[in-house]
């Protein structure tokens, strides 16, 4: 069975099985996340189908360049997480920790950009439901665009914050040398979560910004 001081829990036969279980568990968790977002994507598709011109009109009020910038930021952060795992497997823990810090910083940039966009929308009354007060676009369903916009980006933003918490914790562990070699599984599954955050944004960007 497991050698003393190894990372294998008593109910797993070996490290390989344990890593496989962790990966599978994480993929199942990601499946639940995808279906959580699927509810919102369904609402989006339905209301875009019902109110095509309202969605097109409202979409013009958000700055494509900001969304594109955030897309680049998140894609790059995905790269740094993937590299962190790569170097952790080569037991270069300090480099992995540094890459995780870069990822954290990119997550921070994403949130700042999002904050700037939100404050612009709050200022102009581009708001959901009963808060909608943008006089220049008054067609049925105009406020519904902002409802789905804020729900989708808001839920995504919450995931960014949670992901940053996970990455910070992993960065500390990597810095202390807790992971390395074959035992880089925590970095791998934490990275999977962050990639999901990126994946959701890859779809949100064209759906919200490029109508």
């Amino acid at each position: 069975m497991s050698a003393p001081g190894s990372h294998v829990a008593h109910h797993f036969p070996d490290l390989e099985t344990q890593a496989h279980a962790a990966r599978l568990g994480m993929w199942l968790f990601l499946a639940t996340e995808v279906l959580l977002f699927a509810g919102l994507f369904t609402a989006y598709a339905l209301y875009r189908m019902l109110y095509p011109s309202a969605f097109a009109g409202a979409s013009k009020l958000i700055e494509t360049s900001m969304g594109a910038l955030n897309t680049v930021v998140l894609i790059t952060s995905s790269l740094t997480v993937a590299l962190a795992f790569h170097y952790s497997k080569e037991s270069r823990s300090k480099l992995a920790a540094a890459l995780l810090l870069v990822t954290l910083a990119l997550g921070g940039v994403f949130l700042v950009v999002k904050y700037l966009e939100y404050s612009h929308h709050f200022h102009d009354g581009h708001l959901p439901g009963r808060f909608y007060s943008y006089a220049a676009l008054q067609v049925p369903g105009a406020s519904m665009f902002w409802t789905v916009y804020f729900l989708m980006t808001g839920l995504h933003g919450i995931h960014v914050v949670i992901g940053m918490g996970v990455l910070a914790w992993l960065a500390v562990g990597a810095w202390r040398g807790s992971y390395g070699g074959a035992y880089s599984t925590p970095l791998e599954v934490g990275g999977l979560y962050w990639h999901l955050v990126d994946l959701v944004w890859i779809f949100l960007f064209p759906l919200l910004y490029l109508i």
Partner: peptide, 11 residues
Amino acid sequence: KASLVVLFFMH
């Protein structure tokens, strides 16, 4: 894009 992320970044 998503497929690239899933296949390579997510292994």
